[in-house]
């Protein structure tokens, strides 16, 4: 286990941000923490990165205790923060040079390592430009490059694609996957984008109110809840009759539309439609992690919520 927590808890006054959380992350996996804003993801990561001291409980990162051996933990991890933390008034290369000094990268390999990480994130050509001329996606790539400079065993990514456009987001995913395999790293990331967790993660923990409510591979999580969802519109729906069908896991009516969760649409759709009577509209879609989230928390996850206060948004150019 490269990351292990036991009853890890963090209170801020009366608020419990992380609540007696037990977690194990295996070597080499991409592990996702999925949850809405304020679920406690960032607090959890901050404790693992030794930025925050746990109120109670224990945590080990790479076998080092986060409270007793913070220095050793720090040397063995890389972090990419939620808010851009590269320096605007320095060039990309200068940012990486500072990181080299701060993280004790051996002098002999510094130059070579900078070129190496720059080429992984495709920033060689812009390396000597000031960061304030970079786009949001380029900054994020520079941060990824910086995060892996010192060959960390674990890379922490806090909302790695927050505020990026969909296309850039997909590129960043590619970079993360490439990094994880090329550098043999374990990656732990937080996200509130369902798609991100599905695309990237080997395992996903759904977090709500500081607790893990579900933990499995994205596919297994989806299988537990619903493989397929059938959307039906009709004049006089008979929801009770549909609920009685053996293969229907759940049936709900929302704004004149029936949402029916079934195990396998390819097997049961015909039978289902013969039971519903005449319909105006039917649509079948694969269950997604947002259905899983809804299932476990009873709430929808809202994508694209701006996080942070006024200044953060002001300063994010």
């Amino acid at each position: 286990m490269v990351i292990k927590t036991e009853a890890l808890t963090k209170n801020f006054g009366k608020i419990t941000a992380v609540n007696e959380l037990d977690l194990e992350v295996k070597e080499g996996e991409i592990f996702g923490l999925l949850g809405p804003n304020g679920a406690g993801k960032t607090t959890l990561i901050s404790m693992l990165c030794t930025m925050l001291r746990p109120t109670s409980g224990k945590a080990w990162v790479n076998g080092f205790d986060v409270v007793r051996e913070p220095g050793k933990v720090r040397k063995s991890i890389g972090i990419v923060f939620q808010q851009a933390s590269v320096d605007d008034l320095l060039t990309g290369r200068e940012n990486l040079q500072l990181h080299n000094l701060l993280f004790e990268v051996p002098k002999a390999v510094r130059k070579q390592r900078i070129d190496e990480v720059l080429s992984i994130v495709n920033l060689e050509k812009r390396a000597d430009d000031f960061v304030n001329t970079y786009s949001g996606g380029m900054r994020r790539r520079l941060e990824l490059a910086r995060g892996i400079m010192h060959h960390p065993k674990i890379l922490f990514l806090d909302e790695p694609t927050l505020g990026l456009d969909p296309q850039t987001r997909e590129h960043i995913w590619e970079y993360i996957k490439e990094l994880a395999s090329k550098e043999c790293m374990t990656v732990m990331l937080t996200t509130h984008y369902m798609e991100e967790a599905e695309q990237l993660c080997d395992r996903v923990a759904i977090i709500d109110y500081g607790k893990i409510v579900a933990l499995d591979s994205p596919d297994a999580l989806k299988n537990n809840v619903a493989r397929d969802i059938v959307k039906i519109k009709q004049k006089i729906p008979d929801i009770e009759k549909i609920r009685k069908l053996g293969y229907v896991m759940k049936a709900e009516e929302k704004e004149g539309t029936l949402y029916i969760s079934i195990k396998d649409a390819s097997l049961h759709l015909q039978d289902l439609l013969s039971n519903t009577g005449p319909i105006d509209f039917v649509e079948v879609r694969r269950g997604s992690l947002s259905d899983v989230f809804l299932h476990y928390t009873g709430r929808e996850i809202r994508e694209g919520d701006a996080e942070g206060g006024f200044w953060e948004r002001m300063m994010k150019r």
């Binding site: 923060f81 808010q83 851009a84 933390s85 500072l98």
Partner: peptide
């Protein structure tokens, strides 16, 4: 601007 975080970690 969160630059300090890089130094603090």
């Amino acid at each position: 601007l969160d630059f300090l975080k890089e130094v603090l970690v």
